[in-house]
């Protein structure tokens, strides 16, 4: 499904920063991979490389066999297949909740208005905020906004979903409602790559946990092994700080 091999990424603002130092990760269909690691370790950068919001400088990234680093790659087609959920929601503030869900369906998937709205309402029911379909995003709580953002990504019928700290900007009492939506998704067999600090979620849902530090993957393992018997000292230190 997702095949990243030896991915390097540099930033030049203003001096050269080697943000990803040869990251390799394969994600199988229906697999849930959770990425954890300290701040600045390159988790977001790696995730954003996977749908080319950042262009990786070296290595190869295949999404369903399509090489997205190939300049001729139809990146918009690939992005439509890979949903993304941001820490800061990034809902479109000038559109209603339902319009947020239908915009890309009509422009990218070329669905009719009625079909897009039907799909949109279905997904809003699924994330539990169907009654808010005609309000604007700033009238929603953070948890509700993030659920709308998830529904917006799902409206494209993606084959995989990327989550970048989807609950970090939320008040504690709203974290649960968003995680519940994500757990349901995982149960339905969605392929997911999730950057999060929610260790409970990682333990319960993840098939594999990846630990990143300073631009590389230090350790990969099943949640059981990862949380009970981490190999690296750096992982142990991180877990002791966060748990």
């Amino acid at each position: 499904m997702i095949n990243a091999t030896n991915v390097h990424k540099f930033f030049y603002t203003p001096d050269r920063l080697h943000a990803l130092r040869g990251v390799s990760l394969s994600v199988a269909p229906a697999e849930v991979v959770v990425i954890i690691g300290p701040s600045g370790s390159g988790k977001s950068t790696f995730l954003r490389c996977l749908n080319r919001l950042e262009y990786a400088d070296e290595g190869s990234i295949l999404i369903e066999g399509r090489d997205i680093l190939d300049p001729d790659c139809e990146i918009n087609e690939v992005r439509a297949e890979v949903g993304m959920v941001f820490q800061s929601f990034n809902l479109f503030p000038h559109l209603t909740v339902l319009e947020n869900l239908t915009l890309a369906q009509t422009t990218v998937r070329k669905r009719g208005k009625a079909e897009a709205e039907k799909k949109g309402m279905e997904l809003l029911r699924k994330v539990g905020i169907a009654e808010k379909h005609s309000v604007y995003p700033d009238q929603l709580s953070g948890g509700q906004q993030q659920r709308v953002a998830i529904a917006r990504a799902l409206a494209m019928d993606p084959k995989a979903m990327l989550f970048d700290e989807p609950t970090s900007a939320l008040d504690p009492e709203m974290v649960g409602e968003v995680l519940d939506v994500m757990k349901n998704l995982a149960r339905e067999g969605m392929t997911m790559v999730v950057v999060t600090h929610e260790m409970g979620f990682a333990r319960e849902v993840a098939d594999r946990v990846v630990f990143m530090d300073q631009g590389s993957i230090l350790e990969v393992g099943s949640p059981d092994r990862f949380f009970t018997a981490p190999e690296h000292d750096r992982t142990k230190l991180f877990l002791s700080q966060i748990l």
Binding site: N51, L53, N76, E77, V78, R79, A80, E81, V82, G83, M84, F86, N90, L91, F92, L103, A104, T107, V108, A149, R152, A153, M156
Partner: peptide, 10 residues
């Protein structure tokens, strides 16, 4: 906003 729109394939 641009990133969200582009990540949807627009």
């Amino acid at each position: 906003q641009m990133e969200a729109a582009r990540s949807l394939g627009m």
